[in-house]
């Protein structure tokens, strides 16, 4: 009886809980979710080959009153590019509805001459360099019809050598 008790005490003293791998995994998960959340917060689609412009300026990516529209190059064998609003694939009619909601929330007050007053929403277009301009033009027309007048076109900041 006394012998068994002695064995139990010895055995308990040897048991150790190794928390090092757990900490490692927790750190990995933290880094992973930080990166993923940051990218999804910015509504960035990774597969877009942006055009190059050395004059493009970095702006605060989390500023207010802005909506990001991603335009991906057409998939192989297809002609029409894919348009994404808040990382959701949309057609032009749906895009118009979303833009309408965004524009209505930020309409200017008191500056109306006639009709709908302009909206202070800024539309940021992230489009693939291979997309035909007509599709970007369509997106711009949808914005213009909602009286959105601020547009920014995203490009890669690579300086050109002379």
């Amino acid at each position: 009886m006394a012998r068994a008790k002695k064995y139990d005490i010895q055995h308990q003293a040897q048991l150790e809980f190794d928390i090092t791998p757990m900490i490692d995994i927790v750190f990995l998960l933290i880094i992973f979710f930080m990166c993923v959340t940051e990218m999804s917060k910015l509504d960035i689609r990774a597969g877009i080959q942006l055009p190059i412009a050395d004059q493009a300026r970095v702006k605060d990516p989390s500023r207010e009153n802005m909506v990001i529209i991603n335009v991906e190059a057409p998939r192989p064998g297809k002609d029409v590019p894919l348009i994404y609003f808040k990382n959701k694939r949309v057609d032009l009619q749906t895009l118009r509805k979303y833009l309408h909601v965004a524009a209505e929330l930020n309409r200017e007050r008191g500056s109306d001459k006639k009709g709908t007053p302009p909206s202070n929403v800024e539309v940021i277009i992230r489009a693939d360099q291979a997309v035909e301009y007509q599709y970007i033009q369509e997106v711009m027309i949808q914005a213009a019809e909602e009286r959105i007048w601020k547009i920014s076109l995203v490009a890669k900041q690579v300086t050109t050598r002379k």
């Binding site: 942006l50 412009a53 004059q55 493009a56 300026r57 970095v58 702006k59 001459k113 302009p118 940021i124 992230r126 711009m140 914005a143 213009a144 959105i148 007048w149 601020k150 547009i151 920014s152 076109l153 995203v154 490009a155 890669k156 900041q157 690579v158």
Partner: peptide, 13 residues
Amino acid sequence: VPEGELDAFLPRD
């Protein structure tokens, strides 16, 4: 590569 923006304006009024 850092992304930048080029400003443009649609007809306002």
